[in-house]
């Protein structure tokens, strides 16, 4: 189906959800779930309009973005590097794999106390938690992608005169990109969950901190503005990752791209 024809459906889906929300709150609906004290879209949009005119809103957005982008960039670089290393070197695998397997099941948000103990500044702790969240999806998907590489690509480069290092740069790194981007997409998602949660627990700024702050002063429209902001930022960053992934993996056969 043509992409242009699909947009009206997508927009209509969003508008329908907003319309249901508006009707439910306007009618003070109480059907087990209660909408009588829930702010409606009009209130939220008005509050949003008020906030975007203030410097604080943009400061919070910038702060959260800096945190997530630093944590995510660290996770992407180390996740790919260590994923390739543990998959291709028995030595690195034996050394690091047990450590990763033990650390992986720990939810990143449970690391908040650890982060507070370890890092002198709050800021570094939050970046660390974001990093920990995004790191494992990237690591695991890179490992799987390396293991799934067709042997014939590596063999071809070796019989054309490529050594271990050349094979790494010319075969492994480009070849694992489709798998790596799968991990990066998931990593971006969990990174947002963790940066917001960490900000709610220990931040002084940031969208998560502001959202929790609004809740404690019973500013419900403010809470929803925070959530909408998180939603928009998350969508924007995920879409960037998707776009970069599609750009870099144009060579994939069509049925694998979609």
């Amino acid at each position: 189906m043509n992409g242009l024809h699909r947009w009206p459906v997508r927009v209509a889906s969003l508008l329908a959800a907003v319309a249901v929300w508006h009707l439910a709150t306007a009618a003070d609906l109480r059907l087990w779930v209660r909408f009588d004290r829930f702010p409606g879209p009009v209130e939220v949009v008005r509050e949003f309009g008020r906030q975007v005119e203030q410097g604080q809103f943009w400061q919070d957005v910038a702060q959260s973005l800096v945190r997530i982008l630093s944590g995510f960039a660290l996770a992407a670089v180390l996740g790919v590097a260590l994923g390739v290393a543990t998959a291709r070197s028995r030595w690195a695998g034996d050394l690091l794999q047990p450590l990763f397997e033990v650390a992986r099941p720990i939810p990143a948000i449970a690391l908040v106390p650890v982060a507070i103990l370890l890092f002198p500044a709050n800021e570094q702790g939050i970046v660390f938690i974001t990093f920990a969240a995004a790191f494992f999806p990237v690591l695991v998907s890179t490992r799987h992608a390396v293991k799934a590489l067709p042997v014939v690509w590596e063999d071809a480069v070796r019989t054309l005169g490529g050594g271990r290092w050349r094979v790494l740069v010319r075969v492994v790194l480009p070849g694992v990109l489709p798998g790596v981007f799968g991990g990066l997409s998931i990593g971006m998602g969990v990174a947002w969950i963790c940066v917001i949660s960490a900000e709610m627990i220990s931040g002084d700024f940031g969208v998560g901190y502001r959202t929790w702050q609004a809740y404690t002063i019973v500013d419900y429209p403010g809470v929803l503005v925070g959530m909408a902001t998180i939603g928009l930022l998350g969508w924007l960053t995920s879409a960037s990752v998707e776009l970069a992934g599609r750009r870099l993996t144009r060579w994939l056969p069509r049925e694998e791209r979609s």
Binding site: V152, D155, A156, T159, L160, G161, R170, V171, L177, T249
Partner: peptide
Amino acid sequence: ASADRALMFQDDALLPW
């Protein structure tokens, strides 16, 4: 392996990118 001895594979061995 060495560039002196090139192997042409039966299966598709081109780098797809």
